[in-house]
């Protein structure tokens, strides 16, 4: 049995969710419009992938596209239209 593939796909390492790069599921991607953003952090709490990056003192930095599935929830909840969804395709 190859080392790359465990027995029946068994996962023996915990805390491994960062290994699952869900970004390749995406067909749309969010664009952070910095000039409109008020750094309210609403998108951060709504993001189901926890992939909106920010500083410790609550300054929004942008989206981590390695994990963003392109669901568009952030753009929907943003009260300031500071997130725009664009198409990958």
């Amino acid at each position: 049995m190859s080392k790359k593939f465990s027995l029946a796909g068994m996962i023996t390492k915990d805390g491994n969710s960062l290994d699952l790069k869900t970004g390749d599921w995406r067909i749309r991607y969010p664009v952070h419009l910095k000039e409109k953003c008020k750094h309210c952090m609403l998108c951060v709490v709504y993001c189901p992938e926890d992939c909106i990056r920010h500083t410790e003192d609550a300054k929004l930095l942008g989206m981590d596209l390695q994990y963003c599935k392109g669901c568009g929830v952030c753009a929907k909840v943003c009260p300031f239209d500071a997130i725009e969804m664009k198409s990958d395709v």
Binding site: F5, G9, M10, I11
Partner: peptide
């Protein structure tokens, strides 16, 4: 002593290998 997960999702990049493992 071990935190493991059995029977997880395996998609296009690995499902085939696990089925071959079973056949082997």
């Amino acid at each position: 002593d071990r935190n493991i997960s059995m029977g997880p999702l395996a998609l296009q990049d690995s499902f085939f290998e696990f089925r071959k493992q079973l056949a082997d």
